[in-house]
Amino acid sequence: MVKDITFGQYYASKSVLHRLDPRIKLVLCLLMIVFLFVCRSFPALALMVVFTLVAVGFSSVHVKMIAKSIKPVAVILIFTAILNIFYTKGKYENGDSLVFTVLGRFEVWDKGLYTALFTMLRIISLVIISSLLTYTTTPTMLTDGLEKLLSPLKKLHIRVDTLAMMMTLALRFIPTLIEETDRIISAQKSRGADLDSGGLVKRAKALIPVFIPLMVSAFRRAYELAFAMTCRCYTGGDGRTRMKQMKIAPRDIICLVICLLVCGGVIALNIFFKKVI
């Protein structure tokens, strides 16, 4: 049962996006999210939406998966849309404004409609862009990429490599601990533990005999693991080399250029067209 939790959401494929350098992907993902918020006019946003859709096309991630990633934010989407529709009032800079319709006590202004649509598109694109990152990059690659990106922090005596090692170990032990949880649940159930009935408090209390053995075993594993790592000559990050070296390939440069062009386009379209937000 617990085993069914899929960890991370990597979508295995060999698409262009999958093969991009994780560092480039991380930076570009952040850049594009920032530029979603730089957008002030509809044409600029349209450019970003088109960019997002093209990126989805190149990622070869199934449309269903994309839809799945939007589902959790559906509530937020509806909520912001409603708020924007009913509570945005006011005039544009050039004085245009219009009461679109009146629903009971609420006035709906056309600016409200635009803002709602704008925000929704913005949030959807944001979710798609960020989930594309996790769909196309394995957790290991993400960790490695982050380590490399943050490596300048070493000058400030922040142990980036140690942090990355901790992340890798956490990722490594998630499936192991999930299996262990399953086993402990079965063991406690076979001894008569009732985990599924009763109210919230009772059920939470029933989990105590699951979590205590889990914690104990996790500590024991950690001790053994530390031991094994010592035996394999791990002495911290200093003097370590990596087997897999990250290299910037031509496709990384091309992607970077495309993204920068899109960003430039967004700024230009913001200047030439009417600002909505």
């Binding site: 290991t140 170990l169 693991l225 087997m243 897999k244």
Partner: peptide, 16 residues
């Protein structure tokens, strides 16, 4: 086993 992929784990020792 410290890594999430077999070959990365084998590489751990020599990397150190």
């Amino acid at each position: 086993i410290v890594a999430t992929i077999v070959e990365d784990d084998v590489a751990f020792g020599p990397e150190n």
